[in-house]
Design a protein around this nucleic acid. Structure first.
Lengths: 336, 336
DNA sequence: GCAGGGTGAGTTATCGATAACCCTACCCGA
DNA sequence: TCGGGTAGGGTTATCGATAACTCACCCTGC
């Protein structure tokens, strides 16, 4: 690889002069500038960003940590983040924690040793506290997206899970459902708690008592909750609707129900959080509380970059994005 | 940030000794090793990978360039790539070319200045030649995935687009379709050419003549080809089936058809390349030639890492992955 | 008693770039 | 003619780490 010194030698100037031409700093005569430019082109010179990082203490790399790269919510978010990062001249390093705190820890270590300028962080759960504290201790700016972590103070971009859950539940109740089951993410994840709260709130407002038997916690990862559904559907007072706390869970539920010979929404209605991406384009089926995923990413990135540049006010900002209830075919009145 | 020198001072040894402890090289007595370890912990020392990169001439960063991060094919591929990279101790930098050669160029420049150890490259099209040559000129190892680029010699992981297209077309023909329209990616992209070839091949084998009027080239990006479909459906000999060259196009086609009051598959059958991700899980609707996206990523990464490590044979390898025809509801016999 | 060899560590140069300081013309006005 | 300002560019140290060499010490065997 050719270096700044090769260019300097070729152009008959000092390395510093080349550096000045590259960064457009200092005073350089047009003649010298041209000479250097030509030398750079002839040698196909490309600046070594890593070497630069070492002295200016800035890598121009940001890191995005998400919990599932196959979930359309997060890929759309990633796109928002990437677009924003690029716009401000940053590169992006991705990481995938898989909702797993151990993987998340590994990733945080990688991030620290890469000396990235900042992290856009979708925490795997409350246990992410340690990891975020580690970032803070090393003065790495970060912004949390999608989920809060108790004990962590920072800029955040969140969805209003509670309201979304309430809307979905109210929708089911208004259709006439009285026995609604909830399949939820881990209670170690803030959105799962909020969705639970919104769910219960809506039930109580309608004078319904939440039934502990109809509430389960399986985590957000894609699964097929066969046993759970068999148990539910074997109850004397079996549910007529299921509220799945995310898209993957809804899909698992629907597949299991169909395998059990039950159809959606005739036998059981299903609603969930987050849209499904392409699916909703041609076969809009699931009733969902859709979140503006792209905005989560772009807005989060913007907060992060402002923080890095020191343009942000000292107090932390929290952006809350509202979900939108989209009623589709998967929810219908219960069979009387 | 604490450096190796801080640790050295605290442990009363030289920086070199600390380096040896970190990398487990050279000879160190257990006593010294412990002393250094403790100092590292007390100071919360984290090695600076960038500084290391500068001297060992290796960043342990690989780069993955895809053409659309929102397409489930590429996100699944990305996951495969990430898993493989992580397994071998590499970090991943993502880039998104959006099927756009200009963006791709920017990205290649970024990649070069970051001095990544290698690139897994899904080219935007034949015009990527220049970019790949640039990588080659700077001795950056790369592996091409999904699409070939004429004029470039390197390891590749490809799908058998021709066979897939043939299978889909034969399927339509066997259902009784005789007038099949093709909506394709740009002819500047190898897969689009191959899919066209497979399509024509299947037609000819059945004694059908490809009709130029029924073949269009819109690119792989998501669009709603309203005019195109109106024109097609206004033809005296209008098509009874549409072969969409990727999932996005199929979705656009289906939406437009529905807007026109036509239903799939009753009025028009639709088939396409690549599955849709979540959608196929609950509402398997589209007949597709599904490709093993995860394998594209993991296999590509494996080839790349072998090449970087010098473990690969000098001659280039080309892996061809077979698509699988999955017949679903979107294809049916034509209305007689 | 001493050459020879292995142990455990330190010294110095280097990776590619930039910050901070320094130097030399040249120009201009008093 | 001389002091001082400025344009244009060079020198040197430094970022954080590692490679390559060096060195002191102790052990061993003849």
């Amino acid at each position: 690889m050719t270096t700044i010194y090769d260019v300097a030698r070729k152009a008959n100037v000092s390395a510093m002069t080349v550096s000045r031409v590259i960064n457009n700093t200092g005073r350089i005569s047009d003649k010298t500038r041209m000479k250097v430019r030509h030398a750079m082109e002839e040698l196909h010179y490309i600046p070594n960003f890593m070497a630069r990082s070492l002295v200016v203490q800035e890598t121009k790399i940001l890191s995005l940590l998400i919990t599932d790269i196959t979930n359309p919510f997060f890929t759309t978010l990633a796109r928002g983040a990437e677009d924003a990062a690029k716009q401000f001249g940053y590169r992006l390093m991705f990481g995938n924690s898989d909702e797993d705190l151990d993987k998340e820890k590994d990733y945080v270590d990688m991030v620290l040793s890469t000396r990235v300028d900042g992290v856009l962080f979708a925490p795997a759960g409350d246990g992410s506290l340690t990891h975020l504290q580690k970032l803070a201790k090393h003065n790495v700016p970060f912004v949390i997206i999608d989920r809060t972590v108790p004990g962590v103070e920072c800029d955040t971009v969140l969805g209003d899970s509670r309201t979304g859950a309430r809307l979905l539940t109210e929708h089911l109740i208004s259709l006439g459902h009285r026995r609604i089951a909830l399949i939820n993410g881990s209670s170690q994840v803030s959105t799962a708690r909020d969705r639970y709260a919104g769910f219960v709130e809506a039930l109580k407002q309608s004078g319904l008592a939440p039934d502990p038997q109809l509430s389960a916690e399986t985590g957000y990862k894609p699964i097929e909750p066969r046993e759970l559904l068999s148990r539910w559907m074997a109850l004397p007072a079996k549910p007529t609707a299921v509220f799945a706390a995310n898209n993957f869970l809804a899909i698992g539920v629907i597949r299991c129900l169909r395998d059990m010979g039950l159809s959606v929404p005739e036998d059981v209605s299903v609603v969930c959080f987050d849209d499904l991406g392409l699916e909703s384009a041609i076969n809009p089926f699931l009733t969902v509380a859709a979140q503006p995923a792209y905005t989560f990413g772009s807005m989060g990135m913007q907060l992060l970059i402002e923080r890095i540049r020191g343009e942000a006010a000292p107090e932390y900002r929290s952006v809350v994005l509202q979900p939108e209830l989209i009623v589709r075919r998967s929810s219908a009145p219960p069979r009387s």
